[in-house]
Simulated scan of single mutants.
Amino acid sequence: MGQRADFMLLATTTPDYPCPATVSDVACRLGLGQVPAVDVAAVCSGFLYGLDLARASVETGTYARPLVIGAEVYTSIIDPLDRTTSVVCADGAGAVLCGVDTAVVPASSRRSTWAATEPVAT
């Protein structure tokens, strides 16, 4: 790994608190200092929206190594005895450090070959 994230997105609809954004606390706990950081609250599609925002930020050259995290704690908002929702919604988290591997992808084709490059242990 060795690469440091320069932008961070946290997709969650179950933040620890509504304000300030949870992503700022997570960035601090990860030792990222004051990197630009954004919460994405879009329920099930939040992580995908986060990946798309990361892709766009790399393609435009705004950021080189965005970190996208998806985390939900649905047990804090649903009744575990309600079998209509508890079997569908669960707690979980995942993260990926995105960017372009410049050793593999030539500069002329970076826009069309962007991909998530490194999973992050959670």
Results as ranks from 00 to 15, higher is better:
residue 1 M to V: 11
residue 2 G to F: 06
residue 2 G to C: 04
residue 3 Q to H: 12
residue 4 R to K: 15
residue 6 D to P: 06
residue 6 D to Y: 05
residue 7 F to P: 00
residue 7 F to Q: 02
residue 8 M to H: 08
residue 11 A to M: 05
residue 12 T to P: 05
residue 12 T to M: 04
residue 13 T to A: 13
residue 13 T to N: 10
residue 13 T to Y: 03
residue 14 T to V: 12
residue 15 P to D: 00
residue 19 C to H: 14
residue 20 P to M: 03
residue 20 P to E: 06
residue 26 V to A: 08
residue 26 V to I: 15
residue 26 V to T: 11
residue 27 A to Y: 11
residue 27 A to W: 09
residue 28 C to W: 13
residue 29 R to V: 09
residue 29 R to H: 14
residue 29 R to S: 15
residue 30 L to F: 14
residue 30 L to G: 04
residue 32 L to S: 08
residue 33 G to T: 14
residue 35 V to F: 12
residue 36 P to C: 02
residue 39 D to L: 00
residue 40 V to R: 02
residue 41 A to H: 14
residue 42 A to Q: 14
residue 42 A to I: 04
residue 43 V to D: 02
residue 44 C to G: 11
residue 44 C to H: 10
residue 44 C to S: 15
residue 44 C to W: 08
residue 44 C to L: 09
residue 45 S to N: 14
residue 46 G to Q: 09
residue 46 G to A: 07
residue 47 F to H: 13
residue 47 F to R: 12
residue 47 F to N: 12
residue 48 L to F: 08
residue 50 G to S: 02
residue 52 D to I: 03
residue 53 L to F: 02
residue 54 A to S: 07
residue 55 R to E: 07
residue 55 R to G: 01
residue 55 R to D: 03
residue 56 A to R: 01
residue 58 V to K: 02
residue 60 T to M: 03
residue 62 T to A: 05
residue 62 T to W: 01
residue 64 A to T: 14
residue 64 A to S: 15
residue 64 A to M: 11
residue 65 R to D: 01
residue 67 L to C: 07
residue 69 I to Y: 12
residue 72 E to W: 04
residue 72 E to I: 04
residue 73 V to G: 03
residue 73 V to H: 05
residue 76 S to R: 13
residue 76 S to P: 00
residue 78 I to G: 04
residue 78 I to Q: 03
residue 80 P to R: 05
residue 81 L to A: 08
residue 82 D to W: 02
residue 84 T to M: 06
residue 84 T to C: 04
residue 85 T to W: 09
residue 85 T to E: 09
residue 86 S to K: 07
residue 86 S to I: 08
residue 88 V to D: 02
residue 88 V to N: 10
residue 88 V to M: 14
residue 88 V to W: 09
residue 89 C to I: 07
residue 90 A to R: 12
residue 91 D to A: 00
residue 91 D to K: 00
residue 91 D to Q: 00
residue 91 D to N: 05
residue 92 G to L: 12
residue 92 G to H: 09
residue 95 A to G: 06
residue 95 A to W: 03
residue 96 V to F: 11
residue 96 V to I: 15
residue 98 C to F: 13
residue 101 D to V: 10
residue 101 D to W: 11
residue 102 T to L: 12
residue 104 V to D: 11
residue 107 A to G: 04
residue 108 S to I: 12
residue 108 S to E: 15
residue 108 S to K: 13
residue 109 S to H: 07
residue 111 R to D: 00
residue 112 S to I: 08
residue 113 T to W: 11
residue 114 W to H: 11
residue 115 A to H: 15
residue 116 A to K: 08
residue 117 T to W: 03
residue 117 T to I: 14
residue 118 E to W: 04
residue 119 P to N: 06
residue 119 P to D: 05
